[in-house]
Design a protein around this nucleic acid. Sequence first.
DNA 1: AACCAGGTTATAA
DNA 2: TTATAACCTGGT
Length: 287
Amino acid sequence: MPIVLNGVYPFNFDLIANGGQAFRWNRQADGKYTGVVKKSVFEIYQSGDVITIESSGGDKEEAFIKDYLDIPRDYNQIEHEIKKFKELVPAVSLSSGYRILFQDPWETTISFIISANNHIQNIKRTIENICMKYGEPIDFKGKIYYAFPSPESLADVSEDELRLTKCGYRAKYIIETAKIISSGKVDIYNFNNISTEEMRKKLVTLPGVGRKVADCIMLYSMRKFDAFPIDVWMQRILEHIYFNDRQVSLTKLQKFAEERFGEIAGFVQQYLFCYARNCWQDIVTER
DNA sequence: AACCAGGTTATAA
DNA sequence: TTATAACCTGGT
């Protein structure tokens, strides 16, 4: 029987699944989302504040998936805090129910290396290709899914072969990063008790990982909520709200966000990102 | 056909 | 320290 979570609010799985943090959730015609997390397939359906979850791993996955979905955290309080910045009220209202998932650091690292200068469609396709080619198969409801492959299984792949997954020039970044991670030279699974700044310095030593990708990794897989990834959408919306549409350098925007939002910057980023992506037309036409 | 997109890297001022 | 070009791929 399925896992049922009651009274989960605010929670909007459409935003969570499509909000740029994860690439492996797919909406079915019936409104259910299917995705692979770690070694299990999950099927999630939201109806109001009731979340119904089925998994290839069965009911024993309940604690894991609740942690992944960040269920224990009081997002009502977080949204309330952020709305104290009155310029953020529209963003929070329109993206209420967003949650920051607790994903696997390795998968998140590779996923966001692939995301650089890329389209969402191609990012998702490439990740699926990599999983199908190198990941472990998982049977769920008579269908085969594939887990994200281990660092070891990508470390020995040739660049030409990996390029068949359509990752392009990022192939060498992926392979080199896989080698560094699997060798333990950068131990992303034991970054606990390290400051965000220290962690960022370690992460950007990985090829293909710059400031933006490093902050995505920390925010989406390490619960570093003061991380503040700035992509083109964030740049646009920040310049629009705070700098009268003037062009501002990334480093200045980073500094600005860090000083203004501090410990909750990561949450602010999510609401602003969704707001900018989903409502850009309205934002610019309203003047 | 040229240009762009969830940036990073390598070079140059 | 800050600025510019090149980069796979697939879509317009």
